[in-house]
Amino acid sequence: MTYNEVVKSITPKEKRLENAIRAFVSGGIIGSISELLVSAVSPEFMLIVWIAIAAFLTGFGRFDDVVDFLKMGAIIPITGFAHSVAASSLEYKEEGLITGIGANYLKLAGSVILYGVLTAAIFAGIRGVLWLL
């Protein structure tokens, strides 16, 4: 057996099917509740409800348990983004307001903001060029 085969044979098999079902159902439930909140109040209210839930779960140290249970169903909705900001902020709280919280605030969310802005700028640029032609 090669090294890779040994590693493969002793790594516990991930329950891929179970994970996929969990992600689908939990994502679906979050989506349906969002639709209820949007039609009952507004999209802004819906976002703030999820962000508050994710932020408090992070504060109580429970968000990781939720992700263990809901899988990507809790990461891909706005809850994942809110958790990433709250988690890095809490993590560096001890290091002070500026060099701790401030400098690390968007540490994990930075990639979402950067690549969102970058791709939006590229596609807006492409559209501008297409419009000129």
Binding site: E14, R16, N19, A20, R22, A23, F24, V25, S26, G27, G28, I30, G31, S32, S34, K71, M72, G73, I75, I76, P77, G80, F81, S84, L108, S111, V112, L114, Y115, G116
Partner: peptide
């Protein structure tokens, strides 16, 4: 819709080395 998107994300996560951060981006 939301379920389907999360399902795709989960399949990517379980079958590649990408982290949640990569997939979100």
């Amino acid at each position: 819709f939301t379920g389907f998107i999360c399902l795709i994300a989960q399949i990517i996560k379980d079958n590649t080395k990408l982290t949640s951060g990569h997939i979100t981006s």
